[in-house]
Design a protein around this nucleic acid. Structure first.
Lengths: 294, 294
DNA sequence: ATTTTAAATCGGTTTTATCGATCGATATAA
DNA sequence: TTATATCGATCGATAAAACCGATTTAAAAT
């Protein structure tokens, strides 16, 4: 068993297609096919079921995948820590970012890249749910998100700041003059909310559920700028964290009354994973940006 | 980077001698030398310092070793879990055993091997301290020992039974008629105790320390049967757990008064390591043996 | 029925790991 | 101080393996 074979297996498992996997690994399909076979021979059990020209993971494949992933990951970590030992000016940082935290991220990014121009960053925007999933698969060094549901024990959390939820509406809306608004009032309004998977949406659903309210959710949109465009028409209202609404969005916002509407912005990383110096440095840039904005 | 290279590296790190390491890996010295070099080239930093004809781990080597070990271990675990999936009648169990728990282990071993004759067992007797150290290096599936100091969070503990400490003496000793004895009385006697590293010794030291007693320890022996031979002369007394003294040892024992002299016999294993079916089965045999004896 | 698609297989090529022999350096013994 | 043994590095040759392209086989799709 070799790491090369484990890497091949994991890619094949990911794509469930030998031809594509081979292509993405820059090897031929025949090579991949052979190496998987060798691995299976050594393990004494098939990792894939060949159903016609389709492949699916076997029970054994599912079980084995976790160990293969860990093994490869530990080796990568070892490499990383040594490269880190030499200099922190090179290397790559992979970051998961939720829309809501873009305002904090962008200035941090710019300052960081100015200071360390040789670093390579890879930023993926997405919903908290999908980013957490990918973090678990070692696809990110960390991600920026509002806290979704409960903390999980295999993640590390660093609190950046808290921000209350606010009702968002067109500037011309009569409600924009109010100082505060309750969830009860909101539940009577036509709402356009972020789609499922967004931490904000999960949070809103939970708050409504706690209070036994069943609001009218007429629109679900998986893109925040579009959501704001909809709100600007004046026909719908939305709920976002106060923080993520900037002036140039040209909408009005009214804070929501209630202790439990505080959203906690977090840096989330994977416990047990080696944390590069460069990543730690980035944390400081993000924390500095958070303090400036609050 | 390949697992093969990591295995080579770990063996070289263990023996700190390329020639011996190569021999123990059934490869030539030149091959090992080359493969270590390739690995170092890829990592961009030497893992060993070559001081004359001696090699020592570099800082980088020390850091990298943990990751290499984890990587190899995870791959091995993956293989193990799949072999386990097929049948639990084959494979090897590696067990660390302290002298004090031999009486419980031996009958469990015999029954287990009778039921699963194809299994291969490897049993290492030693002190708790050295066995715990080796458990951390993945050298055992589990070990049997009385609990030493505090529980550590990277170990799993399963309590087997509790046994009080007892003063051990020759049958002819006048003290053998007593029903109980205090630590204060003991501290006046000439003592022969297990050497450092034995859980029992660590425990005794701690109990004396707590009570501010400074006993006369005239003999330290790292072999329990020898210790008992010494005790049989009548010139010395020893302290062992009540349980580990059997009738055929031909010594008398008197329970020690005091709540805190209870020793806890434990199965200790490494958290996060995959636990083979066969190992779980063995646990049951050990637990059954504990219940019978108590 | 025909075409397309995807994995397995085959033969040949390239790369890599491995070995034995040797070299150079160093520690040890005479 | 000199001779000897020991250890890691290096070199050239060989064996093993990974790899590729072409082809085959079988199952979907048309």
């Amino acid at each position: 068993m070799e790491l090369r074979q484990l890497r091949y297996f994991l890619k094949a498992k990911e794509l469930l297609n030998f031809t594509e996997a081979a292509h993405s690994l820059y090897i031929s399909q025949s090579t991949l096919s052979q190496q998987i076979k060798h691995l299976e021979d050594e393990l004494g059990v098939p990792l894939f079921d060949r159903i016609g020209k389709r492949i699916v993971l076997t029970e054994a494949g599912r079980l084995f995948a976790d160990y293969a992933m860990q093994s490869v990951h530990q080796a990568d970590n070892g490499l990383q820590i040594l490269q880190d030992l030499n200099n922190m000016d090179t290397g790559e940082i992979r970051i998961g970012l939720t829309y809501g935290l873009k305002p904090i991220f962008t200035p941090a990014l710019i300052r960081f890249m100015t200071k360390y121009p040789k670093m390579k960053l890879q930023v993926v925007l997405g919903t908290s749910q999908e980013l957490l999933e990918r973090l678990t698969n070692f696809e990110f060094d960390f991600l920026l998100s509002f806290l979704i549901s409960e903390k999980e024990k295999h993640f590390n959390y660093q609190l950046l700041f808290q921000s209350p939820m606010a009702l968002v509406m067109a500037k011309k809306s009569p409600l924009s003059a109010k100082k505060k608004i309750t969830m009860e009032e909101i539940s009577e309004l036509p709402l356009a909310l972020p789609a499922k998977g967004y931490s904000t949406r999960e949070f809103i659903t939970e708050v409504f559920r706690e209070r036994g309210l069943s609001p009218e959710i007429s629109l679900e949109i998986n893109d925040i700028p579009t959501l704001l465009d909809v709100v600007k028409t004046g026909n719908w209202y939305s709920i976002l964290s106060q923080f993520s609404i900037s002036k140039k969005d040209e909408v009005a916002s009214v804070p929501i009354q209630g202790v439990n509407t505080q959203r906690r912005a977090m840096i989330i990383s994977l416990k047990g994973s080696y944390e590069k110096k460069s990543v730690k440095a980035f944390y400081e840039f993000i924390k500095a940006a958070s303090e400036n904005l609050s």
